[in-house]
Design a protein around this nucleic acid. Structure first.
Length: 292
DNA sequence: AGATGATCCTGTATGC
DNA sequence: TGCATACAGGATCATC
């Protein structure tokens, strides 16, 4: 899924409902999701703990637990979902997997649920993941620090200054723009959709080498990153395939995409057909006229 | 160093 | 209709 705007949307939604919840039980239906712990170890370690906060680093959701200062780290990878069912709510499978099971939303309810958290007040949190790439880890404070250190600039933090951004880019002069935008150790949170959208918003081709970027272009790039991410968060993220919000509703940013998924369609600004190529191993979209 | 492909999975879209 | 192939919001690892 899930790039920064989608994880940030989930963070904000879950931060309103999870703090104060006490873990009553945890059910794991796909053990690899919680590896290296066994499902039993994972469940026992969480049992009785209280959620105190929900935060985010890069594309990783961090759920703080007490006692013990543990962090439940969740990565949704390509198809992960987190659905919250308030106390007393009736489960609605159609809302959970609407984009996966096209015309038959209720045919196979919860087919892709891998982990279920039951809280003492009767509310629940479901982790669904079609492709099983996502993971949940229980980390002590020290390992959380590693997660923070292993990632680069947070584009929506005060740290993301032009000076810091330029310095980060300067480390890899020979790499292409697309590749650098996808590198989580340089900028944290961009994925394939937003790397392409940001490049379009900045008027730069994803194929450009970092060393060819002028000071002005770097400035435009930084602005584009902030603008695109902010707007996407405002719309609750992009539901292009499996991603949904914590209540099962789709995000609304798909309607605002300018290049991603629009190969062959006319550019909304100049009419030229959007081009799709393969770059850094990923489908890459751009407007051959608007992007230099 | 950087580019490429395979890998972890399951499902959908396409082309013949 | 059936079948094969490519591709999909991520990230890591081996190889050239």
């Amino acid at each position: 899924m899930p790039e920064l705007p989608e994880v940030e949307t989930l963070k904000r939604e879950l931060a309103r409902v999870l703090p104060g919840r006490v873990v009553k039980s945890v059910k794991i239906t796909w053990p690899k999701t919680v590896a290296p712990l066994t499902p039993r170890q994972f469940a026992i370690r969480l049992h009785g703990r209280i959620i105190t906060a929900v935060s985010r680093r890069a594309k990783i959701l961090l759920i703080s637990l007490t006692p013990g200062q543990l962090i439940l780290a969740i990565h949704l990878k390509m198809t992960g979902q987190l659905i919250y069912y308030p106390q007393g709510s009736t489960l609605k499978p159609a809302k959970v997997e609407p984009l996966i099971i096209g015309g038959h939303p209720q045919a196979r309810p919860f087919r892709y649920t891998r982990v279920i958290f039951n809280f003492t007040d009767g509310s629940r949190l479901y982790f669904n993941d079609l492709r099983k790439f996502g993971w949940l880890k229980i980390l002590p404070a020290g390992e959380v620090r590693q997660i923070h250190e292993q990632h680069g600039l947070e584009p929506l933090s005060a740290n993301f200054t032009l000076k810091n951004f330029a310095a980060a880019l300067k480390r890899y002069p020979r790499r292409r723009l697309k590749q650098i935008l996808l590198d989580q150790t340089v900028i944290a949170g961009l994925g394939n959709i937003y790397a392409d959208e940001v490049s379009f918003a900045a008027g730069l081709r994803p194929t450009r080498h970092v060393k060819t970027l002028s000071a002005n272009e770097m400035k435009k790039l930084r602005r584009a990153i902030k603008k695109v991410l902010r707007r996407a968060i405002k719309k609750g993220g992009t539901s292009s395939r499996n991603y949904v919000r914590s209540d099962g509703a789709p995000g609304g940013f798909a309607a605002y995409l300018k290049v991603y998924g629009r190969a062959g369609k006319p550019c909304q600004y100049c009419g030229q057909p959007i081009v799709k190529i393969k770059l850094a191993g990923r489908g890459t979209h751009f407007c051959p006229r608007c992007q230099k």
